[in-house]
Design a protein around this nucleic acid. Structure first.
Length: 155
DNA sequence: GCCAACGTTGGC
DNA sequence: GCCAACGTTGGC
């Protein structure tokens, strides 16, 4: 299948693109996703080699700050079973693979943030799901055109 | 910090 | 299976 493109949201206070860039090998499991639609994207569609727009949410300004690549496909998210984890889900039985995670690898940090404002006001980007009012999905598909255009704006 | 929009839960 | 109540997200 052809490479696909995604947008991953993260709160920079919790995990920022700089955090990813400073990890050993610049890789990190994308754990803590607790939404079925986002999980299904990971389970069914997100493949090694896919490219990811790294989006900072809940901050000033919200926007796309760089690029990562999928370096590992879906596997069970162990934070589901860890009572110490902020992502602990008591409804999940030990060993039940209800929640999944993929692994991301740092690729690039943009020289400038492509802000949500920019996305909303750009005719080529305004249809992106992240620009939709009330959208809470943390993983959303992105078209190749949108991806390329964002890269142009960020570099 | 506020609060609208959304997804999930659980009583019925 | 409906839907009100609740908790969370995330822009502002």
């Amino acid at each position: 299948m052809a490479r696909q493109y995604w947008l991953f949201k993260s709160e920079p206070d919790v995990f920022s693109i700089d955090d990813l860039a400073s990890r050993p090998e610049q890789r990190e499991p994308w754990d803590g996703v607790r939404n079925y639609q986002a999980r299904n994207f990971m389970r069914d569609q997100i493949k090694k080699g896919d490219l990811v727009l790294f989006y900072h949410s809940n901050c000033e300004p919200p926007g796309v700050v760089g690029i990562a690549e999928i370096s590992g496909e879906a596997r069970p998210d162990p934070s589901s079973w860890n009572p110490k984890s902020p992502y602990y889900d008591p409804k999940v039985k030990p060993g039940e693979a209800r929640w999944l995670m993929v692994e991301v690898q740092f690729k690039e940090k943009f020289s400038k943030i492509v802000t949500l404002d920019t996305i909303k006001s750009d005719p080529k980007l305004k249809d992106m799901l992240v620009a939709r009012r009330g959208n809470r999905l943390s993983i959303t598909p992105v078209t190749e055109k949108e991806f390329q255009h964002i890269c142009q704006l960020g570099r």
